[in-house]
Every structure is written in C-alpha cells, then in structure tokens.
Design a binder for these strands. Structure first.
Lengths: 235, 235
DNA sequence: CCGGTTGTGGTCAGTCCGACCGTAACGATG
DNA sequence: CATCGTTACGGTCGGACTGACCACAACCGG
C-alpha cells in the first residue's frame, strides 16, 4: 500500500505466528489445551500451541498444523475460527512476533491427546494459585478466547461443536453449564432449544440412561441454523 | 504437516499491514472512507487506507497512522477496534501480505476529510453498479466491517461513537437507522434507550429544533455502560 | 415393589417489545 | 393571532418470551 516515491525507511517484515486456544469438555468441565514450550525452558510455564506461518500457507492451515504437530489433534470436524491478532512490539522477548490467535472447539468424545508435552487444564485452575503459569501474553489470549466462546454460545449454535454427532439435550445443557459456569433449569433449557428453529433436529433413537438410572433421553443431531433467534441469554 | 527434525525451510517473515475501515454518518447515510491507491493504478479502483506496520509500532498505532497519513483524520475520540486478520497467500498479487483489518467509527460532526485522494462513499453504492470497485480482498473486509458494526449496535453502546459529545435521542436513532438500514419507531426507541441503565444520561439542555420546526429535544450524553442489558435487537 | 434419578411436558406470573394513540412544543404561514 | 405541519414525549394494549415451579414418565438398584 505504499504510495510515496520518496526513499522511506527500509521495508521491514515481521515474524507471523498462529497460536490456538483449543477448548473441550471433560467430566463436565471446560478444559484448555496447553503445552510446555521447551524442555529446557522454565519448569511450570505453559503456552498455547503455536507455529510460524509458512510462505504458502493460509492462517487457517497454520492453526490446524499447530494442533496436529504439537498435540496430535487432527479432528477434521473441529470448529476453528480466528480470534484476534496480538502484535504488541514487546509481547515476545525474543523479538517482534505478530501472533494470530485462533479458537478451536472439539467434542468431548476425542480422547487421543497428550502425545508429548500437551495437557488439558480445567479453566478454573488458570487464574488460581497452583495452576499453570502462562508464558508471553497467552493469559490475555485465553481470557479473550473464553469470553468469545461464552458470548457465542448465546447467539449461535456453537455449542453443538462441543458434542458428538448424536447427543441428548442433557449433553447440550452440560455444555452451556460448563462454559458459562452456571447451572441451568433442564425444563426451560429444553423448551428454549426445541423452540429455536434449526438449532437441533430430533432423531428417532433414544440414549441409554446413565449409571444412576433415569429416564432415557431422546437423541438429537445438529440443525442447519448457525445463528439463534431469539438468542439464549446467560442468566 | 511435517514435524521431522530434517532441515526445515528457512524461517520466513511476512509483510504485515493494517487496513482500516472507517465508518461515519453523513446526511443520514452510513459512509465508508476509501482512497485511490495510486495515481498510476487503474482508474476507478478504490482501497481501504492501509499502512505497513513499523518495527516499534503497535497495531493500534498503525491503524491511527493509516487514517492520519492517508486521510488527514486525527480524531483522538474516534472509536478504533481490531476487526480480523486476512492472510491468504494470494490475497495480494504483489506478494505475501498479512493484513490486520481495523474498524473505526467517528462522529458525523467532523468534516475535514479529503486532503488527497480520499472520499466518503455511501455504503449503499458499494455493491451496486456504478459504485467503486474495491481492490484486493477489501470488499470482503468491508463486508465483515459492516456486519461487525451492525451486530455491535445490538449489544453494546457503540452507537454513541457515531454522535458528538452532546446529542438527542433522534440523533442516536438516526445512527441505528443508518447502520441497520431500517426505520425505527421513535417512541419505542426512546423507551428502550432510557430504560437501559447506563446507556445515556440526560443533561439539562435542550436542542434547537430543525429547519422544519418541531418540539425541541432534550440533550443527552454518553453513559458509562459499554454493554446493553437487555440488548437492542434488530427488527 | 419402592425410592432415587433423570427426562419431558405443562402452568403461571413477570418482563419485554411492537403497534398504536394522544398530548406538548416548536416553526412556518396566512 | 390562529392554524397547520412537524417533531418530541408519554402512555396503553396485546403478544412473545422467560424464570420459577410442579407433575408425570421411564429407567436403575435394592
């Protein structure tokens, strides 16, 4: 976009990286994928999986690669969206790195994680003492990722990215409860979900009850809607 | 997807730029700032004001600079927020450029624009025949910017970024009508705005009526709220 | 069989919103 | 000054949606 012909300061370039905040749900709790950056680095420091952008690679491709190379996650059905770009000149002590952060969501069914130094942390531990210390400005990225996820559950069908192909309304409700951190009324949640056009479609199957018993639930699949009208507002 | 220890391609860097979509309101219509990229370039092509990121410069600073250097806009009270980053390898035919797009909003009071090749276009002309042809992938950026602005009017107090310090509820309503492109009921709009805590605060002044006469309106200022509860939903 | 648990359907009151009407306060016109 | 058109302001009414409940259905375990 240069327009002036006068001799300018030499055109400089930046290192561009992608850092991915992957969220999933385990045991009813929202969890975040973190990795130990280097074995030689300080113990107890954790970071988001990140990779440098290659010359012929789109940003989305780099995000996928950061998950596959650093955590062995190749889930093709995972939701992936750009979050925000962090470019403060002093955000990385090793030099100027502009980082495009991504938000990734996977269903809670996929167990195969942790091929190396990756781990899933309960997001409740993050700010607390004893929790992982985050490197660089990754704590801020995580804060933004959580807020994005919480907000988009309200007005999009993003919650279905956390559940497998077939799910019950209780599964979906536990997603909202885990991400928002508040309990929801099962009956009202059900009324809201089924009355929102295109959110979920009922299948003819029924799920088997849990270990404690209880009435079997109907099985649903994702609907075609991406935006919810009206929105499901946080209590 | 290779993670092998074999010698990798040399670490490469990208040109990083900031492109800014500035929106304002003129004559009751939503307008977008565009510039002619180069005198020697094809006639009739327009682009968002953009600048390369300097070594010691934050992305926000580059966005401010793109407005001041290319359009003479230095409004310190302008709202500026990051929109999204566009990094497709083929988005710029001259080479790999990763562009961080920004959304800027200024009150409709500021007239001093157009020091060079800058112009304010009615957003209604953009897709239509006879409107400006946008270079690179800037049409997509503009689409995303408009959708961001329209969506954020719903659940934030962003509309006050389009009006001066002191404004009437009719001014604020015309902002919503211009951005959303739909007429709103004045009475219902008023009820909604004044009942949303922290949106606006009443001053003791009254504005003078327009040329056609009419009862003078009370003058309001911005409130302290950033998010609206409940939201002001599009009709 | 019986109590505990979970899913499903319904009621009821309060809130919010769109559509609408009436009044207040101005400028313009005769 | 009287009237009219225009805009601001305040209120009403019915429908839609929501949260707090309650009741029943369907399963498990003892």
């Amino acid at each position: 976009m240069s327009s002036l012909a006068a001799p300018r300061a030499p055109i400089s370039t930046c290192a561009v990286a992608v850092d991915t905040a992957l969220l999933t749900i385990r045991d009813g709790q929202l969890r975040l994928l973190l990795i130990e950056p280097e074995p030689s680095a300080l113990r107890g420091w954790w970071a988001l999986p990140g990779r440098r952008v290659r010359d012929d690679e789109s940003l989305d491709d780099t995000a996928h690669r950061s998950l596959s190379e650093l955590a062995g996650i190749t889930a093709p059905g995972a939701h992936l969206e750009q979050l925000r770009t962090y470019g403060d000149p002093s955000r990385d002590p090793r030099g100027r790195v502009v980082s495009v952060a991504y938000l990734a969501l996977t269903p809670f069914a996929d167990d195969p994680v942790d091929p190396g130094r990756a781990r899933l942390f309960d997001v409740g531990e993050l700010g607390a003492t004893g929790g992982p210390q985050l490197a660089y400005d990754h704590e801020r990225i995580v804060t933004d990722a959580l807020e994005r996820a919480r907000a988009k559950l309200e007005y999009t069908s993003l919650a279905t990215a956390f559940v497998p192909e077939e799910f019950t309304l209780a599964d979906l409700r536990r997603v909202y409860e885990a991400v928002w951190g508040v309990p929801l009324d099962p009956a009202n949640f059900r009324r809201k979900v089924v009355s929102t056009p295109g959110f979920v479609v009922e299948s003819d199957k029924t799920a088997s009850p849990g270990p404690g018993g209880g009435r079997p639930a109907k099985v649903y699949r994702r609907g075609s809607a991406t935006h919810l009208h009206p929105a499901m507002l946080r209590p």
